[in-house]
């Protein structure tokens, strides 16, 4: 067991559901409820100091319970280490927002919501980011076809039928 994983286990105890050391970077799994607390400690406390959140990736395991896995990819420029924190979340559950811990989590969480439909609780501005707001469905879910749910000729809604903008 590596030094980092050991210190994480000592610090958080049974909040860590499982650890994965076969793949790089190593990952730990926590429950959704403990996420903010663990992340705050990982960012601020001394042996960890993960001062950057690089990415938030969702994975859809269709027909599994819980359905989604959310991976938070962290980097510490102080200790030069990487870590992935994973959490399981089901279809109608929400993950807590980490914008209070790293403000850079903002867009990544919006992307998570846009692509997977995973709600992010406490996010200041939870709207679609890549798709337009009248898009239906969440593209990166496994039950969404790659060519979309509408026929190509119907995908583009003519300009004048779109609702008018605010400005």
């Amino acid at each position: 067991m590596s030094e980092l994983i050991e210190s994480i286990k000592n610090r958080f105890g049974d909040k860590i559901v499982s650890v994965q050391e076969d793949f790089r970077p190593r990952s730990v799994k926590v429950r959704v409820g403990d996420l903010v607390e663990v992340m705050t400690a990982l960012k601020n406390e001394e042996p960890f100091r993960f001062n950057q959140i690089l990415d938030i990736a969702g994975v859809d395991f269709l027909n599994h319970k819980p359905r989604f896995l959310v991976a938070y990819i962290l980097l510490s420029t102080v200790t030069n280490k990487r870590l992935i924190v994973e959490t399981d979340v089901d279809e109608f559950e929400a993950v807590p927002s980490l914008t209070g811990v790293w403000c850079g989590a903002d867009w990544f969480e919006r992307e998570l919501y846009d692509m997977f439909g995973i709600k992010v609780k406490g996010h200041p501005n939870l709207k679609r980011i890549l798709m337009s707001e009248d898009f239906e469905g969440h593209p990166l879910r496994k039950d969404f076809p790659v060519r979309g749910t509408t026929a190509p000729e119907q995908r583009y809604a003519p300009w004048d039928k779109r609702r008018t903008r605010e400005y």
Partner: peptide
């Protein structure tokens, strides 16, 4: 890019 967000040719518009 034969995928959900792309327009399949601008000559459709």
């Amino acid at each position: 890019f034969d995928s959900y967000p792309t327009l399949q040719g601008i000559d459709t518009i």
